[in-house]
Write a protein that binds this DNA or RNA. Structure first.
Lengths: 219, 219
DNA sequence: GACTCTATCTCGGTA
DNA sequence: TACCGAGGTAGAGTC
């Protein structure tokens, strides 16, 4: 990784046009070739950047980064305050826990957390507009489509409604009802769900996970 | 801006749980207080981060960053290879051109690029669920709601449909039709628009801009 | 503060 | 490669 602190101006042309007037900034060049221009604020996002793969021509007073999509980043270096390179080596990478896939898995294992007597038919049940997160049946054998989100917002309700429309055209499944499950369901999403005749449920992730470990404890 | 190159492990706990095993990485602390952990790849995005405002306790061998939402970033420094601080000063900031606002402005000036005889009633026409990008009338005086996107995807079509629902309840406007305009309309969005009785149009940004400069040339 | 929508979104998966 | 969906989305604007 190469780090250059420099007084510079920057022009980007590609998906939009952008210009940065003269100031001192940090240029970061990573081993994969991506270039980022950082100011001393604005969170972690750089002011300008160019992802790999690209071609960097780094003359002492001007860097030009181009890629095959016709994007172009031009940095004019007026004064270089520091220019250092480090060998960081490969990164073993990140492990995550608590995202939507995990929530879906937990609910697939405990569909009764959504409604009494609910049983899983299958995860990722396919339709011609994409897979439904969970397809279940209730105690009376009626089909219920479940959409799982970490954050329940309007888009998710619309998505579920589109799936229900599709499934409901299948005489073997009809009538299909829906449950919208999320850790938190936003007020607007609640209203829209009610309007569409869809039940919504806020799921307690820690409780679900706890329930799982309770079961594990039995063995 | 403080830049620390260090062999470290990282743990984040908050909106999810994440762990980074031991490796050499760059820690970036900006003047606004945000902390980012960068590896030597993966584009401009850091592996882990904590935005401002937060509290950083930076002991020599362990940094703990916490915020008021209960998020916590813990960095264990096993070996510090470099620790430098630069005064970058304020950044004058970025000027952009070519984003959605610009496209909307151009279409407001040239509604006939969307359909022959179309005339603008007003931009950002208010409804009780938010403003419609453009409200127009066609040659016969019928109202047409226009949603403008840079990238036309499913969400945008649903958004337009919600606006149309609202506008259509107004007896002074009814019946209201819709046009979905974007630089590129994705296949799924095309299908959904057709399904909802909405016309979609791909707009050539450069052409529109060119048309504008043609007009300017007349003066 | 909550909610809205944009973004050079980024990133990963898949066909 | 393009398309599609998720994101610790971030960030700006509005109410």
């Amino acid at each position: 990784m190469r780090l250059v602190v420099t007084r510079c101006t920057v022009d980007y042309s590609g998906r939009l046009e952008a210009h940065l007037p003269e100031a001192v900034r940090l240029l970061m060049v990573k081993a994969d070739g991506c270039v980022a221009v950082h100011a001393d604020g604005g969170a972690y996002k750089p002011l300008n950047w160019m992802n790999a793969p690209n071609v960097l021509v780094d003359d002492p007073d001007r860097w030009v980064v181009t890629n095959s999509k016709g994007e172009r980043l031009e940095i004019t270096l007026l004064e270089v305050l520091s220019d250092t390179t480090y060998d960081l080596g490969d990164d073993p990478g990140l492990t995550k826990d608590g995202v939507e896939a995990h929530l879906q898995q937990l609910l697939a294992e405990h569909p009764d957390a959504l409604a009494d007597g609910l049983q899983l038919v299958r995860r990722e049940y396919p339709t011609d507009i994409g897979p439904v997160d969970l397809l279940c049946r209730d105690g009376e054998g009626s089909y219920i489509a479940v959409e799982v989100k970490r954050r329940g917002e309007i888009d998710g309700v619309e998505q579920l409604r589109r799936y229900m429309d599709r499934l409901d055209r299948d005489p073997l499944l009809r009538p299909v009802r829906g449950i919208f499950a999320a850790q938190r369901v936003k007020p607007q999403a609640r209203v829209l769900a009610a309007d569409r005749g869809i039940r919504w449920i806020e799921v307690d992730y820690d409780l679900l996970r706890g329930r799982q470990s309770d079961e594990l404890r039995l063995f």
